[in-house]
Amino acid sequence: MVVDLDKCTGCQACVVACQAENNIPINTKDYFLQRRAYEWIRIERYWEGEYPNVKARFMPVLCQHCENAPCEPVCPVYATYHNEEGLNVQVYNRCVGTRYCINNCPYQVRMFNYWHPNWPHRMENQLNPDVTVRSRGITEKCTFCVQRIRRGEIQVEARAGQRLDDNRIAAGNYDPACVQACPTSALMFGDLNEPNTAIKPYFDDVNNYPGHHEHERETRGYRLLEEMNTRPSVIYLKKVDQYPLADKGAH
């Protein structure tokens, strides 16, 4: 996935779409006060400058699906692993809720289910039947909408009458809910195993100029916390500010 921060307006449509798609319970005021509210994708907001000369910066942060995922080796029950497609998978029915993975995740995108999920009366009718309703006491996180990937695969198979390889997700047949909902197309999604994906040049560029060669990159791409060498599968494109603040503030 590629996130173009230049296009992101911080509208939170991805957050709402994710919540609807993935059966995430409604975060009430209580949950926020307890700091136990959770979202699989969140918009981080940063302020730049001093009032009144101030600008807001937004950054959608979701599970980075790291190639060297720090969450995976610490799981005692093998509930989180990397599959052939490069997805960082969380198996809910294996998870016993030790929260080691949450503590080892540098991006804070793994969420612990502190409460039994419930919805207001009749709202449970809008749950997505393709997604498990996670019980209390397990870790959950962004799956890149794996249910849509599987549905896309099945549709391709049904149409073509052939079986796809294990390591090919059917790009172009699906988008995660956040990508689909983004009004400015700030989020782009594709399969890196496919040769001609639109997001491939960004990954090639970032991989070719790692670490200290960052300034030699041709695109605006960078990874979050790149120095940790987790090799995320999400690349962010820097914001290009046409009218920068004259006086850069304290932040």
């Binding site: 692993y81 599959n83 998978v89 393709d130």
Partner: peptide, 11 residues
């Protein structure tokens, strides 16, 4: 020889 990845059935 169908995929036995967890996410085939558990999503």
């Amino acid at each position: 020889s169908v995929s036995t990845d967890c996410t085939v059935c558990h999503k």
